[in-house]
Simulated scan of single mutants.
Amino acid sequence: MPANTMREVGQRIAATRRAHRMTQQQLSSASFVSLSMLRKIEQGSRFPSDDTLDALAAALNVDPGRLLTGHQRTDSRVHDALPAISAAIATHDDPDDGPVRPLHELQLAVEDAVTWRLAAQYIQISQHIPDLLTELARALHTAPLAHRAHVASLLVRAYRCADAVAFKFGARDLSARLIDLMRAAVVEAQDPLLQASVAYVRTEVFFAARAHRPGLRALEQAIDASPPPSTPSATAARGALHMRAAVVASRASNPDVADTHMREATQLSERVPEDIYLGTAFGPDSVNAHKVSVAVSLGDDHVQDALDVASEWKPPEGLPAERRSGFYIELARAQLWAGLADDAFESLKVARRIAPQHTRGHRWAREDAATLRRLKRADSESLTSFAEWIGAV
């Protein structure tokens, strides 16, 4: 590796760290990269490995491609990993022999994958999930009867993490296969609340096919089948389904049904003092984020509704990064439609700061960045730079 390239990468990491007002010790602690290694990287005497680069980028909340000149784009790195995910699920019913970690270690590994999903760290997921899926399939085939439901529930959650990568990066057939496997495994998990979560995720198949009316019907059936909202967890499970149904109804251009489901979700959120996570986050903040999503999906006369929500509420740090960045991406679209081009660009930049991988992979963000660049062709180079980063040029 040429010395000047190592120096440039080190300088870029150091500049990004200082922009985040972090000391070397703080970045070392946040990324789990040793302080001595970090110092050598910033000095330009060591070049970061892929894992080290990903760890630093995650701690700095930026895309790895921003730190490394000439490095592959996020989407290229993820797409390169998709065949390994396909291979892992091809033998789900007859996995190769191999080691299986104790159940508590498998649970920790799945929790790590879920954390990456909520933080929109798709590279991390794509690099680690194939082996984890294979190991979990092996564990399910060898588990004693008393542990099979637990292993099946872990497998469902791991499938969902893999699906997040497949769906976000346009591998629709792979996403559909993963959802089918989730639906099969959740039966063995014997967990009605997890089953509600799977019904939520299944909607992706209908989104991809633009089959919104069948998707709405499937969600309403899942709502009817979900446990009564007698506990916070059951309330969150049913409320999440109503949120999703509101979005699907809005995509089907049915504002009355969308409003009905959103009112149901709002009422249920009042029984949950703060957002809780049960496969998906649900609570007052998540409902507010979905109100913007519904308004933008309906478009036309509903755009002002999105702007009104955003004028009174902003997603707090406690919401998953993917949901927070999604809020700002959808807000940017509403602002653009309302003629607020500068505000739209600011919202897209906020979305990038929160979850760069999610933002760069989002179709609406790319489309709106391209529109902004056309509208403000003579504007500052920051807009052009953003458009180049997101692939809108």
Rank of each mutant, 00 (worst) to 15 (best):
M182H: 11
V350M: 13
A113Y: 09
D180V: 09
L372G: 00
A332T: 01
M262T: 02
S86N: 10
M22V: 07
R323H: 12
V257R: 15
R213T: 12
A3S: 12
E317I: 10
R18T: 06
P83H: 07
A184E: 13
R366V: 13
V257L: 15
D54C: 07
R373A: 14
E381K: 03
D112C: 07
W313L: 03
L103K: 04
A351C: 10
A143T: 12
D96M: 07
L53V: 08
A209L: 10
A87W: 08
R66G: 04
P315C: 09
A59F: 03
R46D: 14
A143G: 12
R66T: 12
S253T: 15
H261T: 03
G10E: 11
S269R: 09
V9H: 00
D275L: 09
P227T: 10
D379I: 03
V248E: 08
P273Y: 12
V247I: 08
M262L: 15
M6K: 15
P284L: 05
G361M: 04
D96V: 08
L194C: 07
H358M: 04
G215I: 07
N254P: 04
R21A: 15
A310M: 01
L155N: 06
Q190E: 15
A237E: 06
V350R: 11
R377S: 14
A351L: 03
L56A: 02
